[in-house]
Design a protein around this nucleic acid. Structure first.
Lengths: 239, 239
DNA sequence: GAACTCTTGTAAACACCGTTCACTGAAACC
DNA sequence: GGTTTCAGTGAACGGTGTTTACAAGAGTTC
């Protein structure tokens, strides 16, 4: 079964521990606490040894970002799977709620991944959940048709590229969609929904609403309702 | 005129230089480059001397945040003043565009102020521009009436508090508004607009749109149009 | 003007950081 | 068994925030 040599197994194990330690430090004490020496201390080794696994502190942080994205995606998928209604509308709600819940539970991770002026992170990393679900939602044809005329011409090229990404994401799961179903108007509204979802969650995580919100959840629900209405979603049908 | 002693003047001057140096470092090389020793080096003094002005590195960063907020507010006001149309709709557009422009031109500052899991920053700091303009917009009665029934009951208390903040912000400038004009439905929509504005700008600054946007400005304009329409604003009249 | 205090700066030190380099010892390979 | 590969060490360099003791000038008081 295990074709890996003893050395390879040890190396993999150590690398796993490094990631785990880095993650724990981030969660416990914030980004600035993710230090090579602190990580090494947790493993009972010395800092230079980490250079056998990562080229630099920065590379390790990038790996950390990827791990976070993967974990978040897993969490979202789990919450999506927990929804047994079979209704796409409920699924969208479930994933949006899961995203908010994850962000509030992991503010440091959220800040690192979603609010750092860094290199654009691999699209397939964090986006896959949203992409797939957004694609599925659109393909379900439960969303009201939005004419392509509504979206400015300048955006057509970008949106068309995103359209391709969406279709690929959906087709990976065996669903084939036609261009006409996944038209630019719909895609534009998906992007607008992402703006609102991200905006609300980020404002909440960073406490940047213009006033103290004592009970943010109903506000989020209310925003979600409005968002789904605006996107033209009819949540009476079953996918 | 100057009641300050010579020593007080010198101290104020040094403090000004400290802030200026810190700001320059942030802009040039990011948050991590804002170092006590680097600041001191710029002033030609030693790092411990800075402790005569700030209790810690963290306190200095907080001061930096305040400075940034003040500068941003000034920039927004300037762009607001540059709009001579006299139409509230144009003013709102001008301020939103100014916010986006400022954020894109100052990504490091934006990240520090708007996307750090820190203490909630003084509301009067950054919000004043938006508050005042939002209040002015609402008070102008150009916004369609939104029934209070639309907003969930749980939010009423928070929104009522924000209502008071808004009315105070407006009344500072001599404008008196009645509760009925500034009803909760309208206020709720103002908050929703902030969610979208912030969401779009932050996503753009951090490059977190789900696809590469080659020309983001028309997308922003499009979002702004939709936002103003949703808020029920009629942009034909003059305030 | 002398004596005194208050303020602003320095230099040295401490513990921590990322990173490099020469080196060790054990595992893996032939 | 000899050789190579490689994870890990220890020392070092220059950087960081922060504390401490100390110097020197400005302002005040007698």
């Amino acid at each position: 079964m295990t074709e890996a040599t003893r050395r390879e197994r040890l190396r993999a194990e150590t690398e796993r521990e490094i990631r785990q330690a880095a993650r724990a430090l981030l969660v416990e004490s914030g980004r600035d606490a993710v230090t090579l020496r602190a990580i090494a201390r947790k493993l009972g080794i010395t800092a230079p040894a980490l250079y056998r696994y990562y080229d630099s502190h920065d590379a390790l942080l990038r790996q950390l970002c990827d791990d976070i994205c993967a974990d978040m995606a897993a969490a979202l998928y789990a919450d999506l799977a927990a929804d047994t209604s079979g209704q796409v509308g409920c699924q969208v709600r479930a994933v949006c709620h899961a995203f908010r819940r994850w962000a509030l539970a992991h503010p440091q991770e959220f800040a690192l991944v979603f609010a750092s002026p860094r290199d654009p992170l691999g699209a397939d990393q964090f986006g896959s959940v949203f992409l797939q679900l957004a694609g599925r939602l659109i393909a379900s044809n439960l969303v009201a048709n939005h004419a392509d005329d509504d979206v400015p011409e300048v955006l057509h090229e970008d949106l068309a590229r995103f359209q391709q990404v969406l279709m690929d994401a959906v087709s990976v799961h065996g669903v084939v969609v036609e261009d006409s179903v996944l038209n630019l108007g719909k895609i534009y509204h998906v992007v607008q929904s992402w703006v609102r979802l991200y905006g609300h969650v980020a404002l909440e995580v960073f406490g940047r609403f213009p006033f103290a919100v004592s009970n943010p959840e109903p506000m989020f629900d209310s925003m979600l309702d409005q968002m789904l209405t605006d996107i033209g979603f009819q949540d009476t049908q079953v996918s």
